[in-house]
């Protein structure tokens, strides 16, 4: 099999490109510390969220110094709680699950973006910076009212954060 020398060169460069891509992703994972959503959130019965210790009353709770957990339920066609309120300059872990069909949970204009699958809990930890407001959209078709499914993430100054905020619906 004789291959033209230019083609051999291109084959080499293609492999270089591929290895370069994989190396970049690996750098993002190991060097920067970007992790993927995985199976650490565990499983739930979507019909029994009412009895779940956390999802029965979705909301934000403080779990450590500057560390918060936000339990979020997606259902046709709302997010609970709405808005989700967290203090600025904190580490927030979202636990998101669905009470019915497949939804999406995307904090618009950011990297916080996960699928929400009934039976599964998506665990997403992010570092929250300055105060501000972000929209949240459901980005997976979930029924005829899908386009109206939105929420809000409100990042408030540390001093203004009231622990009951995120828990209210």
């Amino acid at each position: 099999m004789h291959i033209h020398q230019y083609e051999k060169l291109w084959l080499g460069m293609s492999l270089l490109l591929i290895v370069g891509f994989i190396a970049t992703i690996t750098y993002g994972a190991v060097g920067v510390g970007v992790t993927m959503i995985d199976d650490s959130g565990g499983n739930v019965d979507p019909n029994a969220l009412d009895e779940h210790p956390e999802f029965s009353d979705p909301g934000v709770e403080k779990v450590g110094e500057n560390e918060y957990e936000a339990y979020v339920v997606a259902r046709q066609f709302i997010f609970q709680p709405d808005p989700i309120v967290v203090p600025a300059n904190s580490t927030v872990t979202f636990y998101v699950t669905s009470a019915d069909v497949v939804h999406g949970f995307s904090v618009v204009g950011t990297n916080a973006n996960t699928m929400v699958i009934p039976g599964e809990v998506a665990e997403v930890t992010v570092e929250v910076g300055e105060p501000g407001e972000y929209g949240i959209v459901c980005h997976e078709y979930c029924g005829a009212g899908h386009h109206s499914m939105e929420g809000m993430l409100r990042v408030v100054p540390e001093g203004e954060y009231n622990s009951s905020d995120g828990g209210e619906q």
Binding site: G28, V32, G33, V34, T35, M36, I37, T91, T93, V107, G109, T110, N111, A112, E123, V124, T125, V126, E127, V128, G129, Y134
Partner: peptide, 11 residues
């Protein structure tokens, strides 16, 4: 675009 974006997922 990606690493310069808000809310990097770290866990």
């Amino acid at each position: 675009e990606f690493l310069g974006n808000d809310l990097i997922v770290v866990g």
